[in-house]
Simulated assay, not measured.
Amino acid sequence: MHEIRQPVAVVLALAEAARGLPGTPDETHEYLDRIVDQVQEVSAAAFSVLVEQADDHLDGAAPLDLEEVLESVLDAYTVTWAGTLTRSGPRGPLWTAGCRATVRRCVVNVLDNAVRAAGPTGRVVVTTVPGEDAIRVVVEDDGPGFGLGPPGTGIGLPATRRALRLHGGRLATGRSRTLSGARVTLSLPTVPVRGQPPRVDLHRMTGRAS
């Protein structure tokens, strides 16, 4: 883990130093903030892979806001993908439980397959469907469909299915009814969290996500 942690710490230190330079434009500050966010995500993901235990369930898992995880992932893809990424469904806290880094990795695996299948000018729609027992995240693309996409699509789905199962969730695949491509649904159990005030969305995604 040290061989990962040390270079990550260097990148963060350099970003902090750059943010402290006199006369740094506000736009540069914003980009540096986003660099720091993404480096921290890399560090958390790497750590989760190294320490992840193959248990049948997660006892005492902390509450996890799936909305925050989705925002983090979608924000990253608006920077790295040229296609049209649309967010649909109600906004607000979506409480489940588990390891944030692992759940985020599941979302990234599914979305990565979708944008690869859709291509640089394609379209991907991410829809949240909260329910009393489960929260569903539906990812649809306008690519050719399962088994017909470019090399690299479909990779990571077996691992994603296993990780979701450890969190009491599931993964379902099929054909999109609206975009003609693939449809992948991640489901995680809804966890009631008492005493949590509604989370005000102060972070507006930039780029083509809407």
Rank of each mutant, 00 (worst) to 15 (best):
V39H: 14
L74C: 15
P158S: 12
E132P: 00
L21C: 01
A62R: 09
L202K: 03
W81L: 05
W95N: 08
P198H: 07
R165C: 05
T160G: 11
S187Y: 00
E68K: 12
S176Q: 03
E71K: 10
L74M: 13
A44F: 09
G131N: 01
G181N: 03
V11T: 09
A118G: 04
V36Q: 15
R183C: 08
D201K: 03
E68V: 14
G89E: 06
L74K: 05
V110Y: 08
P93E: 12
H203S: 06
L111C: 09
V8Y: 05
R34E: 15
R199K: 08
P151A: 05
L179W: 02
A46L: 14
A134V: 09
R208N: 01
M205R: 08
A76V: 11
R208W: 00
T78E: 12
L64A: 08
E27Y: 07
G23K: 00
R34I: 11
P189Q: 07
Q38P: 03
P90L: 08
G131W: 02
D141F: 02
L85F: 01
R161S: 15
R5D: 14
P189M: 06
S72N: 15
A118M: 00
A15G: 07
G149R: 04
V110C: 09
D59Y: 02
G89S: 09
T178A: 09
R87L: 13
V137L: 12
W95R: 08
V124E: 06
H203R: 09
T178R: 12
R100S: 13
E41G: 12
L14P: 00
H167G: 10
A97G: 07
P158A: 10
L32S: 10
V137I: 12
E68Q: 14
E140N: 04
A13L: 12
E52I: 07
A97K: 08
E30N: 08
G152H: 03
G131A: 03
L94Y: 05
N113I: 00
G23T: 01
Q53K: 13
V126R: 05
W81F: 14
G169P: 10
T160H: 13
W95V: 04
V103C: 12
T178Q: 07
R165E: 15
A46R: 12
V11R: 10
E52S: 14
D142M: 02
D141G: 05
Q6I: 10
V103D: 07
Y77S: 08
S72R: 15
R194F: 06
P90Q: 10
N113E: 02
P197K: 07
R194M: 04
A159L: 15
P192K: 07
T78A: 11
C106K: 10
T121G: 09
A82E: 11
T96W: 02
V10W: 09
I155V: 15
G119L: 01
S176P: 02
